[in-house]
Design a binder for these strands. Structure first.
Length: 367
DNA sequence: TCTGGGGTCCTAGGACCC
DNA sequence: TCTGGGGTCCTAGGACCC
């Protein structure tokens, strides 16, 4: 059995727990500070009741409810809370998987009373963090995750042989993880509407363990696969100096995070968005792995040159580092040793006075 | 004057090696 | 006058998730 824990309106609930004035109010957490130029990252249940949901543009949300409370996302706060919850769950001494910032899974091999365990976990989470979670229990992660959504917020749902058919009959296919957009549309086009329809068509889909978790329970200790930063410009940008400045800034931001986690990266991926063309980009893997923003930027700019854009009209820019390994960038040349000292000094300054206190001069073009 | 940002996994095709 | 088979790594792009 898998017990899937899904936090309720996680970011919004944390903000409400910290600031009681926001309790029970319609509240959205925006993905960036400009409250009219962002999208909804999380909506409190009072906001959801008005029809506001994550992914909606903030403009639309405010048009539904002009008195909506707005808080810009504070990722560090949510990551910290998520880690605390992870530590709490670890104390149960069961195989534990960190599925996402607000989702966790426990594997219960022959646990005598999963429902009671779920209750206990919910109580502990509430007692410690003043936020609620919904729990789903089933024979594999796909069903457990589905179950956790069925009684939100603050619910517990168990799917077993006694209610399997009934629940699958009542649940439309798009509720199932992986059935977003196009894939779901394909199934619907072939005449399948509910999860039960899919079960009759492909019983193995629910019976086998199509399981990430089931196959590698140690996931939480693995390295991340990639680290990225991206930015959507307020308007289309045609000045290549400004575009380069953004590539530099994003490279520095990625590099800082690599160093914080003692990671080095061999692959740099640059992607761009041109509203007319859509997303495009390229990646390049090198022999040497690095975590220096300047070097990452150089590699990204080389990709930019190779793309040979005639008249760039750029709306969004992203820099991703992948092929990650644990390690510290070890310079060999004396010039590199100088740079390493410089980077360490910059990190110390930014740690002490706040992120962005000191940055390469070219990045002033991003302001 | 529209609508973010950070991730994962999968796949097909190409380059290259033996 | 012609040309196998197997494998790995890399790349571009698509799709999905929170």
């Amino acid at each position: 059995m898998i017990l899937h824990i899904d936090m309720d309106a996680f970011f919004a609930s944390i903000e409400q727990a910290i600031n009681p004035r926001l309790k029970d109010k319609p509240l959205i957490v925006g993905s960036r500070g400009n409250k009219m130029h962002t999208v909804v990252c999380a909506a409190s249940y009072a906001a959801k009741a008005l029809g506001i949901y994550s992914g909606m543009s903030s403009q639309e949300a405010f048009s539904i409810c002009p008195k909506l409370e707005f808080v810009p996302a504070d990722q560090a706060k949510y990551i910290w809370t998520s880690e605390q919850i992870f530590q709490l769950l670890k104390s149960y001494d069961l195989p534990l998987n960190y599925a996402s910032i607000d989702e966790f899974q426990l594997e219960l091999a022959g646990h005598p009373d999963p429902l009671n365990l779920a209750k206990k976990i919910k109580e502990q989470v509430y007692a410690n963090f003043n936020i609620t979670a919904s729990v789903g229990i089933a024979k594999n992660w796909l069903l457990a995750k589905l179950a956790s959504k069925l009684n939100k917020p603050d619910g517990i749902t168990l799917i077993d042989d006694s209610n399997f058919e009934q629940i699958l009959r009542q649940t439309s296919l798009d509720k199932l993880c992986g059935m977003g957009g196009k894939i779901g549309a394909n199934f619907i086009a072939s005449g399948l509407k509910t999860c039960w329809d899919l079960y009759l068509d492909l019983p193995g889909f629910f019976n086998d363990n199509p399981g990430k978790f089931d196959e590698n329970p140690g996931k939480s200790n693995e390295l991340p696969k990639s680290i990225s930063h991206s930015y959507t410009l307020p308007t289309v940008q045609i000045n290549s100096q400004v575009i380069q400045a953004w590539i530099r800034l994003l490279s520095e931001m990625v590099a800082t995070r690599l160093r914080q986690q003692n990671l080095i990266s061999a692959t740099v991926h640059l992607w761009l968005n041109d509203p007319q063309i859509g997303n495009f980009g390229a990646q390049k893997t090198h022999q040497s792995a690095i975590n220096d923003g300047y070097e990452i930027c150089q590699r990204a700019l080389k990709i930019m040159t190779k793309l040979a854009l005639k008249n760039p009209r750029i709306r969004a820019i992203g820099v991703t580092c992948s092929s990650l390994s644990r390690g510290i960038y070890s310079p060999l040349l004396s010039e590199d040793i100088r740079r390493e000292e410089l980077i360490k000094a910059l990190d110390r300054i930014n740690n002490r006075f706040g992120e962005g206190s000191i940055y390469p001069a070219i990045t002033v073009l991003t302001r």
